[in-house]
Design a protein around this nucleic acid. Structure first.
Length: 439
RNA sequence: GUCAUCGUAGCUCAAUUGGUAGAGCGCUCGUUUGUGGAACGAGUGGUUGCGGAUUCGAAUUCCGUCGAUGACCCCA
């Protein structure tokens, strides 16, 4: 019975990919590779080294730190045949933390580690957020001072520049969890839960009406709501501190941010702004937090971000390792690159396409091909019996850079007319000259 | 998980009040038996996401379901 159903099902298996995930056809893969290449080259240029791990993790890794909701509802979690509770990683940070904790005694700090893993979340797909995405994770472990924060933000900035973004396309918003905490606790005297509620309200500020926001605010904060509201609206650190009581404006958090912004300015990063309303992932940040914002008025949103999380290894019972890092997702960055037209035109990796006049010349073509391949040239050999004009057309559609044709004449003379498909330029060459002509 | 809009050929979209499902692009072949991009001609293409209901008759109306997009929730 079940088998019959299965057979019927097989006849009409859907061709669509699973909900919320993407197929990568060669053109898509080209874009994906472009994005990964820029990411890799950039982080490597900062001395970062690559690591990776399985997408499967024991569920307990996430139960320790993340909220109940994340594990309970927003992950792909199942029990394996051996009764183990398994989760498809929804983020990379717990995994790196686990890896660092495991070899903490033999690792040489500071560590500059990166990875471009895919990750899964069980949630409703929407713009910029799918069920599977890839994310560059770059983390710097072992440096407490602001120099590490400067380096990480500078890396994020350089990434944007290497993608072709201009300074006025994006903005780096910075804030510090220390400032947020001291305002919540020392100034507003809020309990943890109240603080969380307030931060959620602040997060929603853009989405709800001003009156509504103000009303909620005065319910929560009473007579302090006006000062707080003023605080949120300040446009610079100086304005911000002038609104604050002295004990907070002199606090460590403020000094950190001041220091950070100065140092970034010194190395030429000017599009940094202090944003008192930047909250970002309430859980594990302990110091500075930052977000890269798209300044396009039609797409004004966060592209990616990160911050400092010094208590990362707590769950493993290890002593603290200071850490700062960020994650840059492929979906949102691709949207950004599209809106600014920064994705290069598709181009296959075929350098040379060898046309064959008939099947009998395929062995000769293969011989030439393998010689060129050993010199790092990517060669595709025609195996069809199509006519030459059609083969050339196919080579062109495949965006091969060069072609040669093999027939009676070539076999006799061992001379090959090589054609540059882009310029149309042709040249009579010998086999050993082909490499130089292409490169 | 909630709400809204949508789902027609590989792609972008048509189809009058419910009356035989069409175009452009693409693809294949030809004009062209050793060199592409153009033009022209011909051809290929669909159980209208899937299942059910109403009807003489459904792409069109209704119900369910799956999927996409956007908002909410939540947030890497």
């Amino acid at each position: 019975m079940e088998d019959n159903n299965l057979e019927e099902e097989l006849n009409k298996i859907n061709r669509e990919p699973y909900k919320g995930v993407r197929d990568f056809y060669p053109e898509d893969m080209f874009v994906q590779n472009f994005i990964f290449d820029v990411m890799r080259k950039t982080v490597i240029s900062f001395g970062f080294i690559e690591y990776n791990a399985s997408i499967l993790e024991p569920t307990s890794l996430y139960k320790a730190k993340s909220g109940e909701e994340l594990v309970g509802e927003q992950t792909y979690t199942f029990t394996d045949r051996g009764g183990r509770d398994v989760t498809l990683r929804p983020e990379m940070t717990p995994t790196v933390a686990r890896m660092v904790a495991k070899r903490k005694r033999e690792l040489i700090f500071p560590l500059r580690w990166f990875s471009i893993p895919n990750m899964f979340r069980y949630e409703r797909p929407q713009k910029g957020r799918l069920r599977e995405h890839w994310q560059l994770n770059a983390d710097l472990f072992g440096i407490k001072s602001v120099d590490a924060d400067v380096e990480i933000i500078s890396l994020a900035y350089t990434l944007m520049k290497n993608f072709g973004a201009k300074d006025n396309n994006f903005e780096i918003k910075v804030n510090s969890r220390k400032i947020i905490n001291s305002i919540l606790k020392d100034f507003l005297k809020l309990q943890d839960e109240e603080g969380t509620r307030l931060m959620k309200l602040v997060d929603k500020r853009e989405k709800i009406k001003q009156d509504e926001f103000n009303a909620e605010l005065s319910i929560m904060l009473g007579d302090k709501s006006e000062v707080f509201s003023k605080m949120l609206k300040t446009k610079s650190l100086l304005d911000f501190t002038s609104v604050l009581p002295k004990e907070i404006s002199n606090s460590e958090g403020i000094k950190d941010i001041q220091n950070l912004i100065n140092k970034l300015n010194e190395i030429g990063i000017k599009n940094v702004v202090f944003s008192p309303d930047l909250v970002r992932g309430f859980d594990y940040y302990t110091g500075i937090v930052f977000e890269i914002y798209d300044k396009n008025p039609e797409n004004n949103r966060s592209l990616f971000g990160g911050g400092r999380y010094d208590d990362l290894l707590d769950i493993f019972g290890e002593e603290k390792v200071p850490a700062v890092g960020f994650g840059m997702g492929d979906v949102t960055i691709k949207d950004f690159l599209n809106t600014y037209d920064l994705i290069p035109k598709y181009n296959s990796s075929v350098d040379l396409y060898i046309c064959t006049l008939s099947n009998e010349y395929i062995p000769t073509a293969n011989k030439i091909a393998s010689e060129l391949r050993s010199k790092n040239i990517n060669v595709e050999v025609n195996l069809t019996d199509k006519k030459i004009p059609d083969q050339v057309k196919i080579a062109s559609k495949k965006t091969a850079s060069f072609i040669i044709c093999i027939g009676e004449n070539e076999v006799k003379t061992e001379k090959y007319k090589i054609k540059n498909m882009e310029t149309g330029e042709e040249k009579e060459t010998q086999l050993n000259e082909i490499h130089d002509f292409i490169k």
